[in-house]
Amino acid sequence: MQGFARRHPVWSLLIALAAAVLAWLIFAPWSEGLESVLGAKRIFLNALFGGITLGALYFLVASGFTLIFGLMRNVNLAHGSLYLLGGYLGFEVSERTGSWLLAFPVVFLLVGLLGIVLQHQVFRRMEGEELRQTMVTIGLSVVLADIMLWIWGGQSYTIFAPDWLFGPVTLPIISDVRDSGEAIYLRYPAVRMAILAAAIVIGVAMWLVLNRTRLGMLVRAGVDDREMLSASGVRIQYVFLAVFAFGAGLAGMAGIVGGTFQSLSPGEDTRFLLASLVVVIVGGMGSIPGAAIGALAIGLSEQMGLVYAPTYSVVFTFLIMAAVLAFRPQGLLGEAR
């Protein structure tokens, strides 16, 4: 952090300024002049929080994708199918047992197992052949999508959150001030706050595991130099299996989250695959903090775009990606290889 500030004083100043402006926009009550330019503060806050929550969901999907790619150079274009499969399985579990929370470990295990099968049976046979992996996983995603369409049909499903997450919570942020001077605080769905909190917890936990544990050390070493790690006696295939299972399980759990605050239907798999692609391109391949920044940027631009320029919200996402590619092809936090 301090190193960054010393190396890039201008950039740090700009980032600090932007953060200050954002904090002021969030916490200070808006004057009438500002509201006439940007619309009601309530709308801005809702778009902002919606964007952050969507970013959290994207992060859950994309972090597994970026981890798998960063460590194994495996291009898993069936990642979106794992997401959708996790969502459908979570729906079944929570419908049959009535427990929303139980769905998470069950789906994590099931989709993680599928991930192990994928890594062991598919990717190990074609290590280093990126193009072939791409083709095979595209074929797999076509097959999986059709099987899921077969089982669950074309209608859309929504997973219901438990009662204790139902309804809104009041946040200590002023959204509006009445004429009488009484402040109205922002109310926001509790489920979304829970998702946001969970994503932050998972992100921090991943960072801790990667940077503070022996397994994380192995994974980081594997990202840097795979041959050297296996030459020093580490059974790298087991590390690969563990990472692939974790990434797949994470995508499956993200499916439950996505099914709770949006819906599950055929086509969501490609949507989330593309979202993770863009997130990872923007953030940099193989970087967890990069995935977080990319997910936040894409989620925010999508939601803000929906509110302020509904026709072109997709174009904003695309423009961010094109700008990153044009000026930093390896992604914001990616390392040039």
């Binding site: 990126e130 193009l131 490609t270 692609l277 072109y312 174009v315 695309f318 590619l325």
Partner: peptide
């Protein structure tokens, strides 16, 4: 500006942006 698998990802992302753009415009 990219090579190999990145080319696939980027062109896929642009192709989907084209699809969504034509659908919304």
């Amino acid at each position: 500006r990219t090579a190999g698998i990145y080319t696939i990802m980027i062109t896929l992302a642009i192709a989907s942006a084209f699809f969504y753009f034509t659908r919304q415009n």
